[in-house]
Design a protein around this nucleic acid. Structure first.
Ligand SMILES: [Mn+2]
Ligand SMILES: [Mn+2]
Ligand SMILES: [Mn+2]
Ligand SMILES: [Mn+2]
Lengths: 215, 215
DNA sequence: TTAAATAGTTAGAATAGACTAACAAATTTA
DNA sequence: TAAATTTGTTAGTCTATTCTAACTATTTAA
């Protein structure tokens, strides 16, 4: 069975490959907070397992096998987060660290049961898609709120960033998935947005708006 | 944080100390299916952590600190088993292997929430007591069915053995915790018991009767 | 287009946890 | 009680995963 370490590396590589397709060693080291030589030796190991393509000094490419394996771990992570929120009453800002551990549990029946009890959800509490059992993952069609124009009415569908601090910030602003947002004004200078939702007005920074995914 | 290995050793030592108070190396090796030298080096490590008393060639004694730490792991194991049965619909024969993994999750709030959702249960699905958060564990007062006399009416309260095979055997006989059992006859030769419960009669072997704890 | 900075690699070492082989102490049996 | 058996220990090895120090290749900037 693959170690937790292997699984965590693979997941990071998969996630970094989404934006750029090619992944570099330094990014992995930063994400996992380990040294470059540690990454280098693990990368060779993963390549030996057929999960990556590796050539000295070249950017890494994840293989289909690697992608599939990573997606299955992410499936467990996101099902867990959904279960913790829906069935155990946790807030969306509390679940990531627990899921980071539970994603390594080896028990297909455990996660299948979660899936069943949840009614086969398509997205996790942060709006990210839950891969299916074969490791296939839906592509999100959402755009950042930052790209919207004044007068547009949109719905908050997912987050482009899910740190505790950001989630707590959203809680404090009563911003949750499903909230209908109308763009009132965009400040030309700094791209701050004045928006209205749930009956009140707020000014959101450009940074925040770039992380709110809407449709 | 303690490794899963350390936690698994400690749990085995705690369990073996219940019956005899003093624990020997060979028993640990057998329970964990590791070699004697592996046990020896881990035992020294645990002693160094103040969890055991160790002197060369002497039986081991678990300290109060060790007992408390072990009980807290067992608490997580048993809460998990209860949660899996009560809230996720698993059978009592399916939950041990999952709990064996989940007991190592580091998240007090996760187990506190389980406890709360379960209504602070005192026993796991096999009738074993769930230690409290301080690592204190209730002592069972039950006696084996094997000690009962013909004519006695008792209730099945807990199991002295919880292997999958035994649990499946009990399922096949419709024996579950809470079932009222009347002892009809005891065969003098082999101590087999003829019993009646849930409206039907069965003959149970001495081995089985020694593992059924009643009151 | 050379120099500086960044990114990636190798070598060597440390720790945790497992193992086998060899040996020593303790216990049981004759 | 002496021999045989069982139990426990030590020494040394192996794999996994991490690290630091030193080096090399690639990329960026002057
Ligand atoms: Mn997460
Ligand atoms: Mn993880
Ligand atoms: Mn169990
Ligand atoms: Mn365990």
């Amino acid at each position: 069975m693959n170690s937790q370490s292997i699984e965590n590396y693979l997941k990071v590589i998969f996630n970094q490959a989404i934006s750029t397709d090619e992944v570099n060693t330094t990014g992995i080291a930063q994400a996992l907070e380990v040294s470059l030589p540690s990454v280098n030796s693990m990368v060779k190991k993963l390549a030996g397992m057929g999960l990556l393509e590796y050539q000295k000094y070249k950017p890494l490419k994840i293989t289909d096998k690697g992608r599939k394996m990573a997606a299955r771990i992410i499936r467990k992570h996101r099902l867990t987060e959904m279960y913790l929120v829906e069935k155990m009453g946790f807030g969306w800002e509390e679940v990531h660290d627990i899921a980071e551990q539970l994603e390594h549990i080896q028990s297909p029946v455990f996660f299948d049961r979660m899936d069943e009890l949840l009614g086969y959800p398509q997205r996790d509490p942060h709006g990210s898609p839950i891969p299916n059992k074969n490791g296939q993952i839906a592509v999100l069609e959402y755009r950042p709120l930052a790209d919207c124009q004044p007068g547009e009415q949109v719905e908050l569908k997912a987050l482009g960033h899910t740190s505790d601090e950001f989630l707590k910030y959203l809680n404090s602003k009563e911003l949750a998935l499903g909230v209908k947002v109308e763009v009132l004004e965009v400040e030309a200078f700094d791209r701050n947005m004045k928006v209205e939702y749930s009956g009140h007005q707020e000014v959101l920074s450009a940074l925040v708006c770039s992380k709110l995914l809407v449709s």
